[in-house]
Every structure is written in C-alpha cells, then in structure tokens.
Amino acid sequence: MRLPRFAPPRLRRPFAAVVTGVLAVAAAGCDSTPAAQPQPIRIGMIANTAGPLQAPGYELRDGFQLYLDTHGGQLGGHPAQLIVEDEGYQSSVSVASATKLLEQDRVSALTGIINGGDVTAVLPLVNQHKVPLVGALGRPELSDVSYVWHTNLLSVEPGIAMAPFVRQKVKGTVYAIGPDFQSGRDEVRGFVETFTRLGGKLANPGGRAVFAPFPNTTDYRPYLKAIADSGADAIFCFFDAQNAIYFVQQYAKSEVAGLPIYASGFVTEPGSLATQGDAAAGIYNALNYSPDLDNAANREFVAAWNAAYPGRVPTSIVMASYDAAAVLDRAIAAAGVNPTPQEINAAIAGLGQLSSPRGPWQFAKDTHAPIQKWYLRQVRRDGRTLSNIVVSELATLGG
C-alpha cells in the first residue's frame, strides 16, 4: 500500500508491519532464556489504513511510534513490537482485527480505534481475553470499563465543552450537524444536550440534529441549503479528516458562508486545515490539546515530533497515542518482570496523575477516561499559515 504524501520517506513500509524493538528468538520461545529476563512484548493497534479516516489512522500509529522511538524501542524495559491491523468502516472488520491480535498475535494490550462504535464491538473480546484496551481517540460511555482505558476523550466531551461558550456568543438559533456513525452522533449529542439544557435553541426542524451518511457523503450542498432555509444564526458541527475538508470548503462557497461555525476541534485539525485554507478562518473549536500549549512536556513532545516528521503538525490524536504508549510504559514497568495482561491492567489502575503535552491528567475511576482541561481554540493566521490558536480554557471535564 502506498502511504499518503504526508508520510515521511522513512515510513514507506507496509502499514500492518510496523515493528519497533528487537524481535528476538525469545519471542517464539527459547528455553535457554532466563525467566527473569524481560521478554519482548507485543502491542496491537487497530486503526484505519485506507479511506476517509486514513489520516487519523496514521496519526495514531505515528504518535505511538514516536514514543517508542524516543524511549529506546521499549515499554516498561521490554523490547516492544507494535502490530497494526485495519479498523475498516464496518464493525466486523474491527472485530476480525481484534480477534487476530488477541488470539494469533497474543498481544498484551490493544490500542488505537477511531470509531467509538468499534470500541463497543470489540469489548466482548477484550473482556473475554482480559487484555487491556488503552484507546487513543474517543468512545461512548460504557457500563463495563474493567479492561477499557482511554487517553483522549469521551466522544460527547468536545460538544459539552463548547456548548456554554456558544450559548454565550449566539443570541439566536444554532444548526447542529455531523456524520452518521457512533462517534459523530456522540459528539453532536454532547453539544445539543448541554446547549439546550442551558436554554439554547436549535434551528434544526423538530429540534433534532442532522446526520449525513458516513463515510460516503462528499456533497454537503443540500445540507448547507437546509441550514440556510432553517434561518439559523450559527452552526455547530463535528466532522473529521476528509469529511471535514468537504464540509468546510463547501460551506465557504454556500449562502451560509457568513454564519459563524463552532465545532469539535477535530474539524480543523492540521491535516484538514492545510487543505481547508482560508475557508476555515475564524472557526472556534474545542479540544483537549493544541501544539502551542506552553509546558515543558509539550515543548519536548513537539520538538521530537518535528524532528521525526518535519512538515506535519502534531494533533490531539498524535498526542493521545503518544500518551497511550506512556501509560503502557509505566504500567508494564510497575507490573513486574514479564507481566500478564491482567497484571498490566491492574497497574494502569494505580498510575495516578500523568504528565502529558496537554498538561497533567489522570484516569477517572468510574469511566477510565481522562480528567483534563479543555481549550477554546480559533483558526487564525500565525505568520503565513493558519493555525488553531488557544484563546482560553473552557472547562475541566471527566471528574
């Protein structure tokens, strides 16, 4: 498979065979190896390798890889092997990938996963095998998180964080729209429920958000015409990657181009923003990370990223995948020599506060998702380029 143009030359290799560390004979079993010696450890990643979510799929991989490259190719003192399998656009693909990783590759942990619905789909396998899933993007709320941890966010949170600001700024009605898959429905629901609870009113007919078919919608002109017909005073949206590019570019050429857009931060992440260009200028968005955050961990992270992947801007997905590796590093080290997946899972529960490029955070006991700050960003010109500039803090969510 040919990698997209934004991948640096040194990464032109098969997506499903990303390997870090030493694949020693001991990985297959070697009776002469002392039991006390740290053995190679396998981590399985599920991420999109093609299609409209390919870009965040590569960000998941590259964020995790950056941590390994800057930590001697090891996790918890063990040579680490990262095995990447496709997430696809049907849950059956994710389940097949998880089955391979758990039963054939016998990984000690899973990570990645872009669509929150796929987290739900693989959960029975995770619980059956008692292997921790340290996800690095969003997911829905779950009733059983015994073996589920997430280093990025719950999918409802970007909308929850943004809603009070929109309620303050917009005196009229807001039209809410997103893609019709689990994460899209969750992201928009978080906004709608919070915004209406605060007294805000939707312009959507019947007060119900609109969802475009995913992943194949490329023409948003009918939806933009519906926004115009609704008389909305502003738009709230969540889209990601290629769909975000289509929506923002078509919005800028539509009759609603004068309406302000408030969004989940994924709408204007750097991979999309580079193509959206001036069409995205002025968009306010909410996210848990921005590369211009001023803290020591972020400065070190951004410098390492820029050295490894010049020309690419680190995103919240990159950051959270980097943090997923950091979580596993600390947990594996704390779990003892050659720990079982169950011992690694127990060690994650005891990690406490973690240092991160986003700032300090920790897992909430009830959700196993981060307690963290959320930031208001706006797309503004920074020199000759457009960037998501942090305007202020919005809230701390997750506690």
Rank of each mutant, 00 (worst) to 15 (best):
M1L: 15
R13I: 02
A17N: 15
V18L: 10
S32H: 14
P38G: 12
T49P: 10
A50V: 10
L53G: 11
G57K: 02
F64L: 07
F64R: 02
H71I: 06
P79G: 01
I83L: 03
E87V: 13
G88W: 09
Q90S: 11
S94C: 11
T99Q: 15
L102F: 14
Q104C: 13
D105Y: 13
D105Q: 10
A109D: 13
L110E: 09
G112V: 05
V119N: 01
A121S: 11
V122L: 06
V126L: 15
K130F: 10
K130M: 11
V131I: 03
A136P: 07
E141I: 12
E141D: 08
D144Q: 14
W149M: 08
N152P: 02
S155Q: 09
R167S: 01
V170Y: 04
D180C: 05
G184K: 07
V188M: 14
V192F: 06
T194N: 07
N204D: 10
G207Q: 11
P213L: 09
Y223R: 03
L224Q: 15
L224T: 14
I227K: 07
G231W: 02
A232E: 02
D233W: 02
C237G: 15
V248S: 03
S264G: 09
F266T: 11
V267W: 12
G271K: 06
S272Y: 11
L273Y: 05
A279C: 08
A279K: 15
A280R: 03
I283N: 04
Y284L: 01
N285W: 02
A286M: 15
N288S: 07
S290L: 10
Y309R: 12
Y309V: 06
R312W: 05
I317R: 01
Y322R: 06
L328K: 12
D329I: 07
A333Q: 05
V337M: 06
N338S: 09
P339H: 03
T340P: 13
E343D: 15
E343L: 08
I344G: 13
A346S: 15
A349P: 01
L351Y: 10
L351I: 15
T367A: 01
H368A: 03
P370N: 08
R381K: 12
D382C: 05
S387H: 11
I389H: 04
G399A: 12
